[in-house]
Each structure stands twice: as structure tokens, then as C-alpha cells.
Design a protein around this nucleic acid. Structure first.
Ligand SMILES: [Mn+2]
Ligand SMILES: [Mn+2]
Ligand SMILES: [Zn+2]
Ligand SMILES: [Zn+2]
Lengths: 140, 140
DNA sequence: TAATATCTTGCAACATTGTTGCAAATTATA
DNA sequence: TATAATTTGCAACAATGTTGCAAGATATTA
């Protein structure tokens, strides 16, 4: 695990440091997406807030994690699975926010459907964010 | 115009006040969605920041405006057109953020396509946010 | 219209979140 | 191991968001 994470960092020309390893490990272990605040609170080790900001930014730039838009002045982050690369994300999956447990899931197998844009609009990127009740919360 | 706006407020059991009228007017006149910061900066009159927060919140609750998720710790707001009501939004359209002019458009005629969720997930709400180059910016 | 009740606003004080420059510490490289 | 390059934490600051409350504005009633 530890070395797998180091590999990911090296592959992206990033020095292998304590905070990067720990934060990436959190993503690997996490059930759902993480916000900056989650990392700050749930981490066992204590990292400077600035370090977390910079780490997330770096990971996004490198294509290690991707952002998920929200409606509440926060941004969620989750691991990329489709070997995204520097400045070239090609995740193409929907996200689901559970109103009950508040976990945000990557629905890696739900691809974003095509939409017919009006004449003249050129699409570069698409996000679809669904919300409701997740599988776990439905079953109880 | 003035009275049309007053009508909307009254219909929603809201007192007709200076700030509500002005802010609603900004939405009517605006080409695209507005963020809290836009209203604070672009308004000719000067409103307290708190008033703007509370006005936006009230308008969302009443179904006068709806939120649009973003990936940058902000929330955008735009007028509802489908006679949404208190706690019951039924807008169902896509949004488009132009990377060039930075305007966010309601694509009122682009409905959000159905997606097949995995077993157990129950959808309550869906948002689709596209980005790229808008019609205006494409034509120059 | 005037009196009163209700609702809205602005202010203050505070909390939380995000940004920048820089020196010290850490990591990679030679 | 020595050096170069990168990363971190801290400080100081800026921006954004929240709450209680008194004063002001609006709506309601008589
Ligand atoms: Mn995802
Ligand atoms: Mn819209
Ligand atoms: Zn759930
Ligand atoms: Zn544009």
C-alpha cells in the first residue's frame, strides 16, 4: 500500500512526502469523496491547512484526483481511475450525493450522457451530480 | 417592470423592500447566473453583505431562484422559470459555463437526460453542468 | 389615515475558509 | 555524503460566511 502510493507520486514526478502519502492514502481508503475540511478533520496526523490546499491543487493538476461540483461553497475531490494525466482529465462518470449519510460516490460505471447543445455552444467538459438516497441508506 | 417584480414578491408572501426589488431586478436583467460576489460588486446601490446572503437564501426557499453547482467554492444563482414553489424546485435544465466570458447560462431547453443508477440508489435531484465556449464567444 | 404588529435591514462581533511570501526542513540528485 | 531542488509550516493577511440584536421599514388593522 505504502509503496503503491509512493509509486503513484513518483510516476507523477512528485517527491514522496509525509503529507502527500497520508492524504493520498485517505483517498484510497475512503468510501466517498473528500472535501478539504474532511481531510483537515479526519486525518490522524496534523497537517497545516496550507499544505492541504497545495496538495489537493497539485493532485488535481497531475490528474490524481478530480473535483466534483457542489451547491454549498465547497469542492469535493475523489480519486481518478481512468489514468488521467497532467491537465487532461478524462473521467466521464456521474456523481451521487446521499442526502442521508452525506457520502458522495463516484458512479464509475455511470457515464455522462450526451446532451444536445444549442447551435454554437462547444462543450469541453461535463459534470452530472445526482442526489437522493444511496444504496446503503435505502436498505435500512 | 418595477410592479412585475413587486408582484413576484407578493405572490411569495414577501414584503416588497428595496433590496429584494433591486436584487430580483438584477437577475431579470442579467444575461447569466449571478454569484453572491457579483451582486455585491455590480449593484449600483450598496447593500449589506448579510442582507444579500439572506435575500438569496429566501429567494431559493421560495422557488424564485435556483442554485447551480460549481467547482470553485462558489454557488451561482439564476431565476427559476418553471413556476417553482416553496421547497419544490422543478427546474430540470442543463447549465453551461463559458470558459472565455465566464458567463453561466441556463439552457432552459436542454433537459437533463435520464441516467441509469445502480440498484438501490434513489434519485431526488439532478444537476448537469457543462463548460466550454458559448455561442457568443464562438462567433468571434 | 394613524396606530400597531410584523418583518427586514444593517451593524457589530465573530468564525471559518482561502492566499501569499518566506525561511526552515525535507527529499532527490550528484 | 554534499548539494540542489522541492516542500512544508508559519505568519500575516484577505475574503467569505454566520449570528444576535436594535433600529428601521413594511404590512395590517382599526
Ligand atoms: Mn468521480
Ligand atoms: Mn438554471
Ligand atoms: Zn447514504
Ligand atoms: Zn462566452
Amino acid at each position: 500500500m505504502k509503496s503503491e502510493i509512493a509509486e503513484i507520486l513518483k510516476k507523477n514526478q512528485l517527491s514522496v512526502t509525509g503529507s502527500r502519502t497520508a492524504i493520498l492514502e485517505m483517498f484510497k481508503k475512503s468510501n466517498g469523496a473528500l472535501a478539504h475540511a474532511d481531510i483537515e478533520k479526519k486525518s490522524t496526523e496534523q497537517f497545516d491547512r496550507v499544505t492541504i490546499y497545495r496538495t489537493l491543487q497539485t493532485f488535481v493538476e497531475k490528474g490524481i484526483i478530480h473535483t466534483i461540483p457542489t451547491t454549498d461553497n465547497s469542492v469535493l475531490y475523489a480519486l481518478c481511475i481512468n489514468n488521467c494525466t497532467q491537465n487532461h482529465h478524462h473521467d466521464n462518470h456521474a456523481h451521487f450525493i446521499c442526502d442521508v449519510c452525506d457520502i458522495t460516490f463516484c458512479l464509475n460505471h455511470v457515464t455522462i450522457p450526451e446532451v444536445n447543445l444549442p447551435e454554437g455552444f462547444k462543450k469541453k467538459r461535463a459534470d452530472i451530480v445526482l442526489s437522493g438516497v444511496c444504496k446503503n441508506c435505502s436498505n435500512k
